[in-house]
Design a binder for these strands. Structure first.
Length: 572
RNA sequence: CGGGGAGUAGCGCAGUCCGGCUAGCGCGUCUGCUUUGGGAGCAGAAAGCCGUGGGUUCAAAUCCCACCUCCCCGACCA
């Protein structure tokens, strides 16, 4: 393909709309353009990269025994009512009423639709197992679309669904998909980390997220470099040192201090000149509509997912000011564990024997020298907080690291959550009707590109791995007015095309060499073949590797052979 | 949805506080000549409902009101 006809609108300056490096580069390199918040067009170079990713995904899905299909984005709301998810998903689902008055949704995901299909077509255990997948646009009315293509309202997702006769079958399908995911992300040259995760709104038991560590990641993961343990922050357990003295004997005398206007942990610790870790943070929650208190150390953050699990509750939300006052008798921000008539749970770190500072359940007042057991009772000590970089790895006890990461894939064991309400069952070999056991597996295709750029770029632009590059090679004639430069460039271009090398010829006239170099670096083609008078006089052309910047001079007649070799040797 | 910021030529911005504009600058674009190994030079040119609607005023990019759009932080979210 010729550059002049390829529609590659590069720009020099960073676009005002972009914050993330990948977003800036995707716009500058002419890969994407924004239409409106959260909706992007893929221009030819972006589209080619996207297709590369999709092809890798398809190949690995097919190799894992999955069959591709395509489902509609238009979905009747009734289908969602049958699983009760229209309520769970809420405003994230884009809904409208068509001219016939039917309520329609733009599919945010396809569990309902695919399960409905399978429910109609699968009768017998002989029809199972089946894994179906599609690559298709999804629509989610995000509260805040962000970072360009990383979090957009319309995005391309590969979603796969497995259907098995029982939990054992699901385990097998799940393993296949997990392995396929690893191969996909490896082929995309992404530094991914699979982590244990919570299953959230999808429901189900086991779940893994495939994360790419990155500054712009909106999720956080805990990773151990010693034993390779990794988990999403939501599920990572905090190992409590059982040697702690536990309940302390009474220490100093309980006292009341005035803390006018200081309600946050930060303010109180500054005002009283004590460490944040000497404070007890008393959070009042509404758990399945029943109020309860959870105590945390001032410098720790609550982990609602773990609290829910530990206490066996379904919904958990922080109490509003009114409820806090009703329950504690004091203003919000000054809650403490003393004299509460609701259940009080505490994170294990509160076992520590010391004189704590805690809220007095009275406006502008805190208590000092608070001792557990002596001054207040805890119903149960639980693991209620987020793991931090100061905590040990739950597996090997060495240091754990907390990193931001972008979720590029997510796999779930769903069980019968969808098959039961949608009537997806089969007859087993004994003639007994049973529900199909399901799994689902998603990949954010756009995010593959964004995280790839996020982790592979330099000051000059994108550095594509060969597997995702829009073109493997760009041929750059420096002066097309020169007959010999022009002739050799066209010749090498034609020969590479004949050899099925994906090659782009920068045939733009009146562009200074600098412009061509900068543009090729920016778009990030793995190999640049530079053809100029200077080297031609010595019978040579020049080949530059984008990633390393290495340049080598090659004899003209050896050029095509050499380029072919470099392309096939290129990593990923 | 709460808080903050912004909308002026294709892109990036100045001008707005303190009304006087025939609205500038850089990049890009077009024409011509020159140039050609890291974003070329000279000469010329085109291109703006100053986000939208209303108001104040002799006069509005500038002041007032309403609305729309976008970005950032937060809450929320697969």
């Amino acid at each position: 393909m010729r550059w002049s006809r390829s529609f590659i609108p590069t720009i020099k300056e960073d676009p005002q709309e972009a914050e993330a490096i990948s977003h800036k580069l995707m716009v500058r390199a002419g890969l994407i353009r924004r239409l409106t918040a959260g909706a992007y067009s893929y221009l030819p170079m972006g589209f080619r990269a996207l297709e590369k990713a999709q092809k890798i995904i398809s190949e690995e899905m097919n190799a894992a025994g999955a069959a591709q299909l395509l489902m509609p984005a238009l979905q009747p709301i009734e289908l969602w009512e049958r699983t009760g998810r229209d309520k769970v998903i809420g405003d994230v689902m884009i809904r409208f009423i068509d001219r016939h008055g039917r309520q329609i949704a733009l599919g945010p995901t396809h569990e309902e639709v695919v399960t409905d299909i399978v429910a109609h077509e699968v009768r017998s255990y002989k029809d199972l197992p089946v894994i179906l997948y599609q690559i298709q646009s999804k629509f989610r009315d995000e509260i805040r679309p962000r970072f360009g293509v990383v979090r957009s309202s319309e995005f391309i997702m590969k979603d796969a669904y497995s259907f098995d006769v029982d939990a054992e079958g699901l385990e097998e399908s799940y393993k296949k998909m997990f392995a396929a995911y690893c191969r996909i992300f490896e082929r995309c040259a992404l530094p991914y980390v699979p982590v244990e995760a919570d299953s959230g709104m999808m429901g189900g038991s086991v779940s893994h997220e495939f994360m790419v560590p990155s500054e712009i990641g909106e999720d956080r993961i805990a990773v151990c470099s010693s034993c390779k343990y990794s988990a999403s922050l939501e599920v990572a357990p905090v190992v409590h040192n059982e040697d702690d003295p536990g309940m302390n004997s009474a220490k100093d005398v309980l006292g009341e201090v005035s803390t006018p206007g200081s309600s946050s942990v930060k303010d109180v610790s500054a005002y009283l000149k004590v460490k944040e870790s000497d404070l007890i943070k008393t959070l009042i929650f509404k758990a399945d509509d029943i109020p309860l208190a959870v105590l945390l150390r001032g410098d720790h953050d609550a982990n609602e997912t773990k609290i829910k699990k530990e206490l066996g509750i379904r919904t958990l939300s922080l109490a509003d000011a009114a409820l806090v006052e009703k329950v504690t008798g004091g203003a919000m921000g000054f809650s403490g564990p003393l004299g509460l008539s609701i259940p009080v749970y505490a994170d294990n770190s509160i076992r520590e024997a010391k004189n704590w500072v805690a809220g007095a359940n009275k406006k502008d007042t805190h208590l000092v020298n608070v001792c557990n057991d002596r001054d207040f009772k805890v119903s149960k000590f639980i693991d209620a907080r987020l793991i931090t970089g100061d905590d040990p790895c739950p597996k090997c006890g060495k240091k754990i690291e907390v990193k931001n990461a972008v979720e590029i894939g997510h796999t779930f064991k769903l069980g019968t959550k969808y098959s039961e309400p949608l009537g997806a069952g089969y007859l087993d070999r004994n003639g007994v009707q049973k529900p199909i056991v399901m799994g689902c597996y998603g990949i954010g295709v756009n995010r593959i590109l964004a995280t790839c750029i996020e982790t592979s770029h330099d000051k000059d632009g994108i550095i594509w791995p060969k597997s995702l590059a829009p073109f493997a090679v760009v041929v750059i004639p420096l002066n097309r007015d020169d007959a010999e430069v022009s002739r050799i460039s066209e010749k090498i271009y034609a020969e590479l095309l004949r050899e099925n090398v994906e090659v782009l010829l920068d045939d733009r006239d009146n562009k200074s060499p600098g412009v061509k170099f900068k543009d090729s670096d920016l778009v990030g083609f793995p190999l640049q073949v530079i053809i100029g008078k200077k080297s031609l006089e010595n019978g040579k052309i020049e080949i530059k590797t984008r990633k390393t910047g290495e340049k080598s001079l090659v004899d003209i007649d050896m050029a095509v052979t050499c380029i072919k070799k470099m392309v096939s040797n290129a990593v990923s």
